[in-house]
């Protein structure tokens, strides 16, 4: 079977765009894992909370997409800190598995809180829908480009924060060796709170980016959390560049699978990737060093 080049190129572009958006919450997921050492599945509901915060800012407040992203970051981040403090922190001494199960329970509770507040209906952002640009054989949408820019800016901000600021360095220190970091006088609790704020904030930004291109409902986060998890595992749980590489890999692999698979089976690709990586390279593509 010959594969048309145009079609492949289009699929790669679609995959890169999808992967970039997936990378934003995946960074959050892996950052929490790096610092707190448990998979925080309540990221799903924080994606939803961010999506709805952005929606409220956009439709009720009349804010443009870029400002809605900031609102989503702050609201989801704050929710993340509160939820972690009240629900997950008391569970942490019982071990990573207990905390992860608590996080799954928390996410379902929060999802229903969103449902109670906003109802079950689908909602769309109040943005004009524009026709796509046709660049030679490749089709790409203005909204996608905008999402891409927002996602890349968010990632750049994360890397700059971790590289150049004192707090960012403290975070990396805790992720690398919490005991040694403690000896150096780094307050682990404060780092945990900051990590939660930043990571859940990124989840919220991811929620808005997903919603801008599609629609949002209380299940928005739940639908993507497994792909986010897959991206983090493939890249190496705990590695922030790994989350980006993992998300792009999953995004492109899912799209390219369409060349030989029916779309209905596309979701399986991410999980085949998890199995392959865990079997052949258990620490993920980039290992588990945080940065």
């Amino acid at each position: 079977m010959s594969v048309p080049l145009d079609e492949t190129a289009q699929l790669v572009v679609n995959g890169l765009v999808a992967g970039t958006i997936l990378a934003v919450p995946a960074i959050g997921f892996t950052a929490i894992y790096a610092v707190l050492r448990f998979p925080n599945f309540s990221l799903a509901s924080h994606i939803t909370i961010g999506a709805f915060a952005g929606y409220a800012a956009n439709t009720l407040g009349g804010w443009p997409a870029s400002a809605a992203v900031v609102a989503a970051f702050v609201v989801a981040g704050a929710a993340g800190v509160v939820n972690d403090h009240v629900v997950l922190r008391p569970l942490r001494p019982a071990g990573a598995l207990t905390t992860a199960i608590g996080a799954v329970a928390l996410t379902i509770v929060l999802e229903n809180v969103v449902r109670f507040a906003f109802g079950n209906d689908l909602r769309g952002y109040a943005l004009p829908i524009r026709r796509d640009w046709q660049l030679g054989p490749i089709r790409i949408g203005p909204q996608q480009v905008e999402n891409l820019v927002i996602a890349v800016l968010a990632m750049a901000a994360v890397f700059a924060f971790l590289t150049f600021t004192r707090t960012g360095k403290a975070m990396r220190a805790v992720a690398d060796d919490p005991v040694l970091a403690g000896l150096k006088g780094i307050d682990a609790e404060r780092v945990a709170r900051l990590t939660n704020f930043g990571a859940m904030g990124l989840a919220g930004v991811g929620g808005v980016l997903l919603g801008l291109d599609t629609t949002i409902d209380p299940l928005t986060g739940f639908r993507v959390i497994l792909s986010v998890f897959a991206a983090a595992v493939v890249g190496g749980l705990g590695s922030i560049p790994g989350a980006v590489v993992g998300a792009l890999t999953i995004g492109v692999a899912e799209e390219l699978s369409l060349l030989s698979l029916a779309p209905a089976y596309r979701t399986a690709v991410g999980f085949v990737a998890i199995l392959l990586v865990l079997t052949l390279r258990p620490r993920g593509l980039l290992g588990e060093r945080a940065y």
Binding site: L210, L258, P263
Partner: peptide, 14 residues
């Protein structure tokens, strides 16, 4: 035939 829980259907529409 697509998986309805996906968040994007660009390739299907293509």
């Amino acid at each position: 035939i697509y998986d309805k829980d996906k968040t994007t259907f660009r390739s299907e529409v293509d």
